[in-house]
Design a protein around this nucleic acid. Structure first.
Lengths: 126, 126
DNA sequence: TATATTTATTTCGTGACCGAAACTTTTACC
DNA sequence: GGTAAAAGTTTCGGTCACGAAATAAATATA
């Protein structure tokens, strides 16, 4: 039953983070966009459209569109691979770093608030 | 610098969970939908449209739409409040419980895989 | 050099979601 | 009873994202 507790705790941290993320006015990314952004920033390069499509198991146009959006937001940058000019390398930006840094702080704060603050605590039935 | 490490670890758990969530075929909920669902399930009732709109700082129509979608998916149920028939109470369902249970397992698995598995490990620069 | 393959993007038609405003129903107030 | 207020929903116009198919550009292969 230690597992049970851990899952509920994990979900509650997730809840606090998601609620905080929705509340702030920052651009709310879709799950795909967020997964892509995190992968580019926390996983060793190179990152190509093809590779990300395979990793996330989505179509290449979906990756292209996510990159379009993240590019508009300045959180990612495209660079043509000089060794194979068909490929596009997705690269990090300062703005994206700041965004993820803040998001990390959001999660850590949510985890610290665990079992305190809003009085929910025990999730009751179910 | 212990904080730095903690934030990166948190982001990496987030990344693993998001990637796993995108990869599976399960319905991918928007951030608002997920925040709403988690709030209904992990926070003490009653939950009304008005209350959720205030908590999440979004418009009431947005909450209505999220409830429509979650209702279609069978993850939430509407019930008219007998003591004030203007209000709608959002309630949990078995299907929603199963979904969140599985999502919790996803997070826990992502946390357990921390610093192992996919070889990313050190996030390098930034 | 000519053809085939690979990578990424664009196009097309469709569906989901957004905020603001209008609307319905119910309750509160006088 | 009659008017005002409150809770949700619906409508409206616009934006964004989706998958599938078509396309453009670069590389590999014959």
């Amino acid at each position: 039953m230690g597992f049970e507790l851990t899952e509920l705790e994990a979900l509650d941290v997730w809840r606090r983070t998601m609620v905080a993320g929705v509340r702030r006015d920052a651009p709310d990314l879709s799950a795909r966009q967020m997964a892509l952004l995190l992968t580019v920033y926390l996983t060793p390069p190179p990152h190509t459209v093809r590779g990300l499509a395979e990793l996330l198991m989505v179509s290449k146009p979906a990756v292209t569109r996510a990159c379009d959006r993240l590019g508009e937001l300045g959180m990612i940058r495209r660079k043509i691979d000089d060794e194979d000019r068909r490929s596009v390398l997705l690269q990090r930006t300062v703005k994206g770093s700041v965004f993820l840094r803040e998001y990390g702080e959001l999660i850590v704060a949510a985890a610290k608030g665990e079992a305190a603050a809003d009085g929910s605590g025990l999730p009751g039935r179910y």
